[in-house]
Design a protein around this nucleic acid. Structure first.
Lengths: 246, 246
DNA sequence: CGCAGTTTTGATTTCTGTCAACGTCTGTGG
DNA sequence: CCACAGACGTTGACAGAAATCAAAACTGCG
């Protein structure tokens, strides 16, 4: 821990107040420092200070595929996407990152792109690893997280391989709604939905043209309503049925 | 460790000789007990004895989706597949399991099916976890393994979303060839290939009818040759090109 | 031999991508 | 305040990929 303190020295800066991250409930879902030591400043993760805190404007690339991954970013606010770019220039979004998510995809050589404005904190990955290793319960939480990531990726593989465009898009929306609800960021059947149609397309392996047609169909059938970056599921039962047609 | 010994008691049986698993090089790739303690019987994994050792005939279901996962099977011999079944009865193979692979997909509610005859050993998952926790380097190996699994799943998601049937099938074959080569189980460009076309179909998200057509095309173009459960890549460069058209 | 599981082949249909045109919205700068 | 450019969304016509359907050949095996 002394060594860690020394490592932190060069990065020391005036910390934001303990309410720097008031909209930080999501941390509770993952590896929440507040869970470990209630009432403590969220920024001080297990006594670790972030090496950097940044606000990234919407649509900006946060990390490119080949960047060194000696820091682990935590998304505190905003939406981001981790993606890979194929040699023909087409992009595949592997997951959307919501507040509370940890960006440890980096080994997969994913780039990370801010969708909305993103506020995030980066921790040194070696410090983080040391902290994990020193605490059995943290380690188990981290393992569960990694496992959950794997399941999510496998679920994605299932969806892409065997489902129609309708199903894929409906499932994506339901997945996001579920994750936002977990975080207390949903308002009943209405969620903030900052994704552009090309994001949906890249996440579902479709084209944005086709996404437009499917979403129009959904609207025509009275399943959902999208306006002003907000999405409402009007017919939850019917929409669920679309998502699980097979 | 005493508690563990007691747990093992009920399962104790005459152990096979130390050459029980002569074709066990693959263990070296993952978490090889032989690496940790050279010369030791592979069956005794970090001092853990398997709770069961089984030989499963070809095409038999090894574990079903909802089975309890209190044991972790290690594939010692043969090919298996982990899959999920969708509500309409269609199947998606998430990964093929080769000798040396550890089946810890189970949390994903995958069923596991023997393709060839499979010989495997099952360890108690709680014992295994305890063993991992007690040794830092083992733990890191396991973490790497889990990460690798995630990368593989993500790669699969990329492939399924954005690649044509030709590419998917070629990539599957190349992936298998690579894994077999790593294990010293390939004979140059020739590999043992016990998969039925429906396995290929379920793994690539295609129909077996279409797989048949694509494989016929590959043969017609002199790219590969399949006969008698063995596959040879006749034109490695050309085949590679098919696999990475985009 | 007969049977069940495979593989092949052809005809047809469905889904999704591609291309192109056009409308809307948003932010920027004069 | 307006003009403008760029990003985004919608729509229609068309093309291509793969699914579906159906039938026939092949394989191994009791």
């Amino acid at each position: 821990m002394n060594a860690l303190a020394k490592l932190r020295e060069p990065h020391s800066r005036p910390l934001q107040s303990t309410t720097a991250c008031p909209s930080c409930p999501p941390f509770d879902l993952n590896i929440c420092p507040a869970t470990a030591t209630p009432g403590q400043d969220h920024a001080a993760l297990w006594g670790l200070l972030p090496v950097s805190e940044q606000t990234i404007p919407a649509r900006r690339l946060m990390f490119r595929q080949r960047d060194l991954h000696d820091v682990v970013p935590f998304i505190c606010k905003g939406w981001a996407a981790s993606a890979v770019t194929l040699s023909d220039g087409s992009r595949r979004i592997l997951s959307f990152l919501l507040p509370g998510d940890i960006v440890f995809h980096r080994a997969a050589h994913c780039s990370v792109e801010a969708i909305t404005e993103v506020y995030c904190r980066c921790y040194r990955s070696d410090e983080l690893r040391a902290a994990l290793m020193s605490d059995r319960t943290l380690l188990e939480k981290a393992a569960r997280l990694l496992l959950d990531r794997t399941l999510r990726a496998q679920q994605l593989a299932v969806d892409l391989g065997r489902r129609t465009a309708d199903e894929r898009i409906a499932r994506l929306i339901l997945d996001l709604q579920g994750r936002l609800t977990e975080r207390g960021m949903a308002n009943g059947q209405t969620i903030h939905f900052p994704l552009r149609q090309h994001h949906v397309a890249d996440a579902t392996g479709l084209t944005s043209v086709h996404v437009s047609k499917v979403l129009s169909d959904f609207r025509r059938c009275g399943l959902i309503e999208i306006s002003d970056r907000s999405l409402t599921i009007l017919d939850p039962a019917g929409f669920q049925r679309v998502a699980t047609m097979r």
